[in-house]
């Protein structure tokens, strides 16, 4: 049971982001329920799910390797950065590793806020930095031929959109 806080909402400690790096699949509905449970200030939940793509019909499987320890650390750092920029009441990042099949879930990012703009922007921010900073590597198996996926320059180029500190949905200065 959640206790009623004697403090105003602004003085409550920020909710700690839920960060999971796991082999198992995740359940989108469960995560959406969990992020808003017991939190009536939430008016918007945004989720992004990344899945294994098979563009040419040749992909047998994809194996994701990661750097245990650093992965969790990087995801927590990125989540903290997002929580500093937007008023979030919930933040979830789940990333899978190991062998995955076409169509399988890879990653889930969920953000919850009072109004939609913060949740939308924070979710995109989290994914942009996850793609450039979180130590994961994909290897594709296209029927006997195994190939590491090359990083895309475009994934780094999009980071510039976050260089302007003042986004419309970000936190006000000193209020």
């Amino acid at each position: 049971m959640k206790m009623k806080s004697p403090f105003s909402p602004l003085l409550q400690a920020a909710k700690v982001a839920r960060i999971l790096v796991q082999k198992e699949d995740f359940d989108l509905n469960k995560e959406v329920t969990a992020i808003s449970a017991g939190e009536n200030r939430i008016g918007a939940v945004v989720t992004f799910t990344g899945t294994v793509r098979d563009m040419n019909g040749t992909l047998q499987s994809m194996t994701l390797e990661h750097y245990p320890g650093m992965t969790e650390r990087e995801l927590s750092r990125i989540a903290k950065e997002a929580e500093g920029r937007w008023s979030l009441h919930g933040c979830t990042i789940i990333h899978r590793f190991g062998k995955l099949l076409p169509g399988d879930n890879i990653v889930l990012v969920a953000t919850a806020s009072a109004h939609r703009q913060a949740a939308f922007e924070a979710a995109q921010f989290l994914m942009d930095f996850l793609k450039s900073d979180a130590p994961f590597w994909k290897k594709e198996d296209c029927g006997g031929e195994n190939k590491w996926v090359d990083a895309k320059q475009s994934d780094l180029d999009v980071l510039s959109r976050w260089q302007t500190k003042k986004m419309p949905g970000t936190k006000p200065g000193n209020t």
Partner: peptide
């Protein structure tokens, strides 16, 4: 020590130093 490093970052004998290609998660 599990933090991204630039070329001029100092290294010590007690460090954990990782080498890898550009990341491709997400």
């Amino acid at each position: 020590n599990q933090v991204h490093a630039q070329a001029d970052q100092l290294v010590k004998d007690e460090d954990e130093i990782a080498f890898f290609p550009p990341v491709t998660g997400g």
